Amino acid sequence: MARAAEDVKYRGRRRWNGSHGRVWWEGLLIFEISKYEAKVTADREDVLIGNSKDSKVVSLTGKGSMTVKCVINRNISRFLEAWKAGKDPRTTIVSLVDDPDAVDGQKERCSIDNVWLDEITLMAFEKGQVVEKEYPFGFTPEDASFVETIDA
C-alpha cells in the first residue's frame, strides 16, 4: 500500500542509483549498458500577445542515446545493410530503474516503440581503454509510455 506523500521521510538512500538500471533492445537485455537517456522535447513557436512573447507547443521530438561497453556485436550490421538497401528499420527499447532502496520497493519502467537509430559507429577503440559504442536514437513521443512509475 502506497503511503501518503506527507508520511514519506526522504533520505539519501531514496535517491535512485543508476547501477540498478537495465535496458532491453529488441526484447534482449543489454547486460553491458553503461549509460542510457531518453527524453522528449517540446517544439515551440512564438505567440505574441500585445508586447509579450509567449509560446505554443506545436510538436514533440523524442531523442535518446545509450552507451554500451562492447562485449558482443549488437547486430548493428543489420541496420547498416538496411540503410544501404534504402530501408529505415525500427525497434523497441524498454528501460527500467529497479533500485532496491526506492520508496516501497517500486520500479520505474518506460517502453518506447518506433525507435530509429540516428548513427552507427562501425568501429572505435582506444589503446588501454574498454571499448564503448554510443547509439544515438530518435522516436515518436506518442509511442513512449511509462509502464511502471515510482510514486510517493
Rank of each mutant, 00 (worst) to 15 (best):
S77Y: 08
E134M: 06
V47I: 14
D151H: 12
V40N: 02
M1Q: 09
N114S: 12
S55E: 10
M123Q: 11
K35H: 12
G128N: 10
V71I: 10
A5N: 12
G138W: 01
A102Y: 05
A144F: 03
L28I: 08
S19P: 00
D143Y: 08
M66H: 07
E108N: 08
S95I: 04
T149S: 10
S59D: 14
K127M: 05
D143C: 11
G62H: 01
R78V: 07
F137R: 05
V8C: 05
F125I: 00
E132G: 00
E37R: 14
G138L: 03
D104Q: 13
A42V: 07
L122A: 08
H20C: 09
D7C: 10
W25S: 01
R15I: 11
L60S: 01
R90M: 10
D43Q: 14
D43N: 15
E132R: 08
S111Q: 14
P141F: 00
S65V: 02
A4S: 14
D104L: 12
A5H: 11
V58C: 07
S34Y: 00
F139L: 04
N51F: 03
V23W: 05
F79Q: 00
A82E: 11
T67R: 14
E45L: 03
A42E: 15
E119G: 00
E126I: 03
R22V: 01
I76Q: 03
K133T: 01
I150N: 03
M1S: 14
F79M: 04
G27H: 02
I72A: 06
K9I: 15
F137C: 03
D88C: 13
K69Y: 02
V23F: 05
M66L: 15
V71R: 06
N114D: 15
V40K: 01
E108I: 07
G105D: 05
V47Q: 06
E148R: 05
G18Y: 10
K127E: 09
T61R: 13
G138E: 05
R14H: 15
E45H: 04
D43T: 11
K35V: 01
G86A: 08
N114H: 10
T121Q: 10
Y135H: 06
E45S: 09
R74C: 02
D54C: 08
T140N: 14
S52T: 12
W116G: 12
V103H: 13
E119R: 11
V8Q: 04
T61I: 11
L117A: 13
F79E: 02
E119Y: 08
G62V: 02
S34N: 06
A85I: 00
D54L: 13
D88I: 13
R11H: 07
N75H: 08
P100M: 04
